[in-house]
Amino acid sequence: MFRDIAEWLANSPAREFSAGLLSSIPGLPPILQTVHLLSIVAIMASIVLIDLRILGLAVPSQQLDEMIVRLRAWTVWGVIGAIISGILFVLARPNRYLLNPVFQIKFILLIGVLILTVCFYRWSAKNPFSHEPGNNIGIAKGVAVVSLLMWIVVVMAGRWIAYSEYLFWPG
């Protein structure tokens, strides 16, 4: 699947456009990478902090239902910002990314954790923690551990794309 998409992208005008943009505007690559990092900051300050709050590790004074509503926009914009700032690099060099096993793992985990996050937001809106804290918090703690680990691996995997040969020696 990744191979087909890479081949299709490699021959698309989007590749030429992205590669041209990244090489012609001085400083664009580090600026976009910084936008990518700042988008991760927004994800850390929203979803990751909510996970830590659920696990009882951070911000005990903040009320969980209120936090979830207040920080939702941060998660949404963080994810949008990260996708926009990351996609140009993938489009410019589709083979380098899509055929890289670390990128593939990152991509699949990212889709997984995004689905988990959407489900968690919908579920917590229907089952406020302030109403029946006893039942909900057990499920929420399980989700929080999985979400926390997945986000950390996704963020770390981003850096490992450039070093995948340490993990997956070709041939």
Partner: peptide, 11 residues
């Protein structure tokens, strides 16, 4: 470094 600095700036 990336995980810790993003968590740092987030807080």
């Amino acid at each position: 470094h990336v995980v810790s600095m993003t968590l740092m700036l987030g807080t």
